[in-house]
Design a protein around this nucleic acid. Structure first.
Length: 419
RNA sequence: GUGGGUGUAGCUCAGGCGGUAGAGCGCCAGGUUGUGGUCCUGGAUGUCGAGGGUUCAAGUCCCUUCACUCACCCCA
């Protein structure tokens, strides 16, 4: 084997790939029911979009981007996340000049240059939803509920919801300063010390025990929220409760992207190895302005498709994997029959009956084997004798019962049988 | 970027202290020249991840390298 998928990437193959399609659809379905419209944006963007939108100080921008120059020397980057591109598209096309909020959803590939491990790949898939241009706790709650509904519609029971508020430009600076003051007094390694200066909130997310231990007395955002943020967050929480969506308050929940304000949330699952987030999002009231647009308070989430797959696998929801199969399988004997069978399966498909046939010039036995393995309920056997009689042998592969039917009537008869 | 584990047939894996490669499943053919599954018989699997070294001899020992995998950092 001379080629393989690039490092950190993998292929989805049948029958798993079918389930991935179903997962994408299920995660997006609630948003579609809530009036979110579908958007597609380029898989690569101007590098500066992410540098400014996601934040220079984030790991994503500082070390995880797939950045390359195009032939004209522009710096492009494979998108590491979906929110900045969506905001860019909304601003570029002036969607925010119409009815607000602009509600959109997307589904697609994301890329981050990282060492892969379980649940973390260089190429992964997200379904995302964004609501732009409205500051309303009901909108935050709506999105969170839609995400929760997506997971539960797949049968997942182990997804937990964590929520927090990061404050806004009124209260965040004071909290940030208080947190920095606290963190500067700790015994931390060099990388972490510089993170304290650049993005102190992210230090709260550190998993290392020696760091964790020192963080016990750290000031929490919850204690520093201004009255407006506090009221906003209370309203989001109470709407979630009213909708029957269970959640845990996690005052340590911060997100790795710079643009988040106020509401942040994460859907977590413990079946993903060391990774825990299956989805996450939050409010990003300042992002539009960072990208040169007008104030456009917004909220959104991204749900990880492949991580959701892993979560489902961990919960045993993928066991009875049914291979996609056709209803009817054609077994032609000889060249004349092959030509006729080619037309017959086409006719069946046009009649809405899924059909496949033996290819590769196999003999009868081999073709019947093919019929068996295709999972089809019926086999259609067509040889010279049948051709002469303008008939075909219809065999029920579950009972081995076989009857001869006129070629002209096969499609109708099968249409009735496979319903 | 750092650390651990693993690389042998399409898949899952054996291979004692170095002696020239194996099983199960799958695949193909036949048993049955117009009938699948079960059964029986037979067959093909391979640069033993790659390169180098030690040795009369390396899947096995040594070095290098690559890939996969898990974990850290971080995140979906």
């Amino acid at each position: 084997m001379s080629f393989q998928a690039p490092k950190g990437t993998f292929d989805w193959l049948p029958p798993r790939s079918e389930q991935v399609l179903a997962i994408r659809e299920a995660l997006a379905a609630p948003a579609r029911l809530a009036g979110y419209g579908y958007v597609e944006t380029p898989v690569f963007e101007d590098t500066q979009l992410f540098a400014r939108g996601v934040g220079e100080s984030t790991d994503i921008v500082s070390k995880e981007m797939y950045t390359f120059p195009d032939k004209a020397g522009r710096s492009l980057t494979l998108r590491p996340e979906g929110t900045a591109p969506v905001v860019r598209a909304v601003l570029q096309h002036g969607l925010h000049n119409g009815r607000l909020p602009v509600k959109v959803w997307y589904s697609g590939s994301q890329f981050r240059y990282e060492r892969s491990q379980k649940g973390r790949y260089r190429h992964f898939w997200q379904v995302g939803a964004e609501a732009l241009g409205a500051e309303d706790p009901a909108l935050d709650a709506e999105l969170i509920v839609l995400g929760a509904r997506g997971y539960s519609s797949l049968g997942l029971t182990g997804v937990r919801l964590l929520v927090n508020s990061l404050g806004d430009k009124t209260c965040r600076p004071a909290y940030r300063a208080a947190l920095q003051a606290f963190l500067r007094g700790l015994d931390l390694d060099e990388d972490t010390r510089s993170r304290v200066e650049i993005n102190p909130l992210r230090v709260l997310d550190d998993k290392r025990p020696e760091v964790r231990a020192q963080l016990t007395g750290a000031p929490l955002v919850a204690d520093h929220l201004c009255p407006a943020c506090k009221a906003y967050h209370e309203e989001v929480r109470s709407l979630l409760g009213a909708a029957g969506v269970a959640f845990d308050d996690d005052p340590r929940l911060v997100r790795g992207l710079d643009y988040y304000t106020r509401t942040t949330f994460e859907f977590v699952h413990d079946g993903l190895g060391s990774q825990s987030a299956v989805g996450g999002g939050g409010r990003y009231d300042g992002l539009s302005e960072m990208l040169g647009g007008p104030p456009l308070p917004s909220v959104g989430w991204a749900l990880g498709v492949d991580r959701t797959y892993l979560a489902m696998e961990a919960e045993g929801l993928l066991t009875d994997t049914e291979q996609e199969h056709v209803q009817v399988y054609g077994v032609p004997l000889g060249d004349d029959a092959r030509r006729r069978m080619f037309l017959l399966v086409d006719e069946l498909r046009r009649a809405g009956v899924s059909a496949d046939m033996a290819f590769g010039g196999k003999g009868l036995k081999g073709s019947m084997k093919g019929a068996d393995r295709s999972g089809a309920r019926f086999a259609l056997i067509l040889g010279e004798r049948d051709l002469a009689a303008q008939a075909v042998q219809l065999k029920d592969l579950t009972t081995a019962e076989q009857t001869e039917v006129p070629l002209a009537q096969v499609a109708d008869i099968l249409k009735g049988k496979v319903q």
